[in-house]
Nucleic acid binder design. Structure first.
Lengths: 201, 201
DNA sequence: ACCTGAACACCGTTCAAGT
DNA sequence: ACCTGAACACCGTTCAAGT
């Protein structure tokens, strides 16, 4: 079941995955699916878990805590970034499957190795995770917008039309802005966030 | 129209807002709505713009750049946090309405006042904004989960069941974890992020 | 125990037809 | 020009009935 569901999503996006459609694909009745999942949301969470289970465990990691954290979050970000639909699922529930516990453990340990207390490490993890979620959300929504170019390149129009009088900063950034938001520099931005989190360690 | 739409959302959530439903509420035909908006997504973006327009412009702000940034992001976060549905809309498009330009301008100016170049300020804004989006997403999804308590307190169960053998950090945090994720400390976490962003200023 | 089909109560959007 | 209603092609989920 999950394989078929994944195939539909991969080909046509999350919105195309419906109980009826999935059942058709499987030549089963729609209601038979409800033996395996509570409802559609449950199905989506199941798929997220599978994706999380496939996150590659890097064979060896940098020993230096900061570099180690960068590498670990890279696994998380890149694994989730590949499948645009995760974003829609993340909105309705946290990522917390048995299969990612090792990663969280590693991240916490690295924060502690960097000098934080266990509680500080937990807070730091939450902060960096939330930042990562934001990155995923925003990068996918801008990707989606460039895809449907007929619709709203509105935002960039808006910024381009800014008068330098009242909004000098935005006016100065008219050229830089589109570049900055397109650029995929999760890694670089995360580094800055980590700087803050490790500051008074 | 927008008022009626907002009322529906406020009372029954975004999912309850449909074109047909809104038309019924307005005693108009469903299709008449399509004179005002391109489609349902367009309607949602329109509502987000209105909410953004209502963000209060604080009469006076701290002069010190770091404190100023905290105050400005507070406006943003709290304004958006009040209406749980914004999250679903943010996923399908950035927040970039004419009515928030003043805020972005102020934030950029504050970063520059803190010693960043204009381009660095743009990057810093993007980082802090993405972090803020992540905070909004995660805090609402955990709120939603506590609401439907019958479903998945799964995640906490999962963590509580952790064996101290393989996952010592997670085991040590069993008690702290639920507290940490419930606690609404956007402000404190943002402060850490800003530390990182302002570091080599 | 497990599965089914019909039914309920909805959707967004197109488009020809009316005023 | 503006609005309408019917129609198309869907949804998730309940529940009584079948094997």
């Amino acid at each position: 079941m999950a394989d078929a569901a994944e195939a539909i999503i991969e080909r046509e996006g999350v919105d195309a995955l419906s109980m009826r459609r999935l059942a058709r694909e499987l030549d089963s009745s729609t209601m038979a699916l409800y033996r395996h999942v509570r409802d559609r949301d449950d199905l989506l969470v199941l798929l997220l878990d599978r994706l999380a289970a496939d996150l590659p465990r890097p064979p060896r990691l940098p020993r230096e805590p900061r570099k180690r954290l960068l590498a670990l979050f890279k696994v998380l970000y890149e694994g989730l970034d590949q499948s645009p639909w995760v974003v829609q699922v993340l909105v309705r529930g946290d990522l917390m499957a048995p299969s990612v516990l090792w990663l969280i453990e590693e991240i916490l340990a690295a924060f502690v190795a960097a000098g934080l207390s266990v509680e500080q490490a937990a807070d730091a993890y939450l902060t960096a995770w939330r930042f990562t979620v934001g990155e995923l959300i925003v990068s996918h929504s801008t990707a989606r917008q460039s895809a449907e170019l007929d619709r709203h390149p509105f935002q960039l129009e808006l910024l381009a039309a800014v008068e330098s009088g009242e909004l000098p900063m935005l006016a100065a950034l008219t050229d830089y802005w589109p570049k900055a938001r397109q650029r995929k520099s999760y890694q670089a931005r995360l580094a800055k966030v980590l700087d803050g989190l490790l500051t008074d360690a």
